[in-house]
Design a protein around this nucleic acid. Structure first.
Lengths: 225, 225
DNA sequence: ATAATACTCGAACATGCGTTCTTCGTCAAG
DNA sequence: CTTGACGAAGAACGCATGTTCGAGTATTAT
């Protein structure tokens, strides 16, 4: 009849690859040979092993011999260029910004967000980045909504003109996100929304720059489970 | 009074978590108890097991008992998988929305954005997603700025109440991003900015729903390389 | 038909790896 | 001091899991 098998991937190869992927994403680790057999209606472990060897020769998977569940998909980049940014807390207009301590690790964080490096400034140092969840509508003048995630970079209190920074104004008990401009008589804090007026800060009024905003993420449809 | 160790993560807990993560991303699968012990200078498997139990109780990891390497980090998707979303074009208030054809692949796109799956609705089908870059300030009432990237999902012209959708209004030659509500006399398009008034669309006025907005990304500091 | 592959099966084998038990030292509370 | 919780170690146990082998059945080529 039909040729038993054309070149390339056969039906079983695909089935196995599909199961490998789904198991990995479902369980967080690869399946055993026997589990693969069960899922793909192959009764013998040696047959699974047979196909696994072929998939490895084709370069589709990588196998660590002798060790349990030592299968990993080569594609779906093992070294994806992205990293977790710890969510240090929430940012509210009337409270100081929670800035992570230097020995802060993301394991202490309530959660973290995954961000691809390609979306971030090229020279960003991972350790300097942290994220805050916006609480309330008070950042609307910065075009930032309740629930948005703001990715920030520690700058050690410095800021350059034109950068969007998170500022804490001690005398006003106010946190705000604005574009920063140093001027002769003090500072100008310009809202992102062009229809709104800037705030002028006198030279003697204290002003703490907590970080530079590098990215804003808004997940609109996060209710779906 | 106080326990010997402060509550929370001890030094060894962190060390183990760190190793779990690095091993996972390096090898593609979790380590064994013995490997953990070696990497963290714990000589006994039972001690590793001891800490693993604690980490599980704290909710930091998940364990599948009895099975090899059955450890997975709970926070932030164990598998670092992300994918490229094609940027189909630009979205302008006065022009129809460029929607990719069904046979569209991201290889055809001028560019693409990398987004972690953990940031997207879990049931998202990769094929249904595409992205648009916002051109101009006309989406300000949707809290979306010039240059923002809007990730959308094709819905086949359908929309549910409360979803943010991209709508094309043929009679007005207008594209807009609004929250969608079906009402008795027609439709209500509610801006994301709560200070702005909704648009009411009569039952007979045509209205094309081009997609559902699932995410907005704003890269503020696109430093030139 | 015969040989040569490709594929399949089941079973035995060896060991990887999670689990459990016993023992020991330290520190805080009673 | 005694007790008990906590942290740590090492060894033994036993199932889970990768590996190997011998044999059987299609499919294709010669």
């Amino acid at each position: 009849m039909m040729a038993r098998k054309a070149k390339g991937l056969g039906e079983r190869h695909k089935k196995i690859l599909k199961f490998l992927e789904s198991h990995q994403s479902r369980e967080g680790f690869p399946p055993t040979i026997r589990e693969i057999g069960e899922a793909t209606d192959i009764s013998s472990t040696s047959v699974v092993n047979y196909y696994l060897d072929q998939l490895e020769k084709m370069g589709k998977i990588e196998r660590q011999r002798k060790i349990s569940r030592g299968i990993s998909l080569t594609e779906s980049s093992p070294l994806v260029d992205m990293f977790k940014i710890p969510v240090a807390g929430r940012i509210v207009a009337g409270e100081p910004i929670p800035v992570p301590a230097s020995d802060f690790t993301y394991f202490d964080a309530e959660s973290s967000v995954d961000v691809a490096r390609s979306l971030l400034p090229s020279r960003s140092d991972t350790d300097e980045l942290f994220a805050l969840e916006v609480d309330g509508d008070s950042m609307i003048d910065a075009m930032i909504n309740d629930g948005d995630i703001v990715v920030m970079k520690s700058t050690g209190g410095e800021a350059k003109n034109g950068e969007m920074v998170a500022v804490w104004l001690p005398e006003r008990d106010e946190t705000t996100l604005k574009y920063f401009y140093k001027e002769s008589e003090g500072y100008r804090l310009q809202p992102a929304n062009p229809t709104m007026e800037p705030i002028h800060i006198g030279k003697d009024e204290p002003l703490e720059i907590k970080g530079k905003v590098v990215m804003v993420i808004r997940q609109i449809d996060k209710t779906v489970i």
